[in-house]
Amino acid sequence: MYAIVEIKGQQFKVSEGQEIFVHRLDAKEGDQVTFDKVLLLAKDDTYQVGQPTVEAKVNSTVLEHLKGDKVIVFKKKRRKGYRKKNGHRQSFTKIKIDSIA
């Protein structure tokens, strides 16, 4: 059984017991979070496709907050002496999918 759920503007294919990284959520570690925007629900060989959503909920637990790898943004224009270097680390939240109901 799996579901396609929208979390913070991104779509994820989730199943029970799975751990995924999503953009930073406003919840503390150990909190229970419920997602209502379920776009597709698949159980065995039956599928429910939402128009736009399905009447289902995905329950999850926040495991930890962390940052991703550093991404270097480097801009240069040749022969002009123009160089800009910038770095960025995205904030993520690791969640575990408890149940799909």
Results as ranks from 00 to 15, higher is better:
Thr93His: 00
Leu41Pro: 02
Ser91Glu: 15
Lys75Met: 00
Thr53Ile: 15
Gly87Trp: 00
Asn59Met: 11
Gln18Tyr: 05
Leu40Arg: 12
Ile100Pro: 03
Lys85Gln: 13
Glu16Ile: 03
Leu63Val: 08
Val54Leu: 08
Glu64Ile: 06
Lys67Phe: 09
Lys70Arg: 12
Asp26Lys: 12
Val62Gly: 03
Asn86Gln: 13
Val5Met: 08
Asp45Cys: 06
Arg83Asp: 00
His65Met: 06
Gly50Leu: 06
Val58Arg: 06
Asp26Met: 10
Phe12Glu: 03
Gln90Pro: 04
Val5Arg: 00
Val71His: 11
Lys37Gly: 05
Ser91Asp: 15
His88Asn: 06
Thr53Trp: 13
Ile72Val: 15
Lys37Met: 12
Thr93Ile: 05
Ala27Trp: 00
Glu6Val: 08
Ser99His: 11
Glu29Cys: 10
Ser91Cys: 11
Ile7Leu: 05
Thr34Leu: 09
Val58Leu: 11
Asp69His: 07
Lys75Tyr: 01
Asp69Cys: 02
Lys8Ser: 15
Gly9Cys: 08
His88Ala: 06
Thr46Arg: 13
Asn59Lys: 15
Val73Ile: 14
Pro52Phe: 10
Ala101Trp: 07
Glu29Ile: 13
Phe74Met: 07
His23Arg: 13
Ala101Cys: 12
Glu19Ala: 04
Lys57Gln: 13
Gln48Val: 15
Lys75Leu: 01
Val22Thr: 00
Val58His: 02
Lys80Asp: 03
Ser99Arg: 14
Lys75Ser: 04
Thr61Arg: 11
Phe35His: 06
Gly50Asn: 08
Val49Met: 10
Gln11Phe: 09
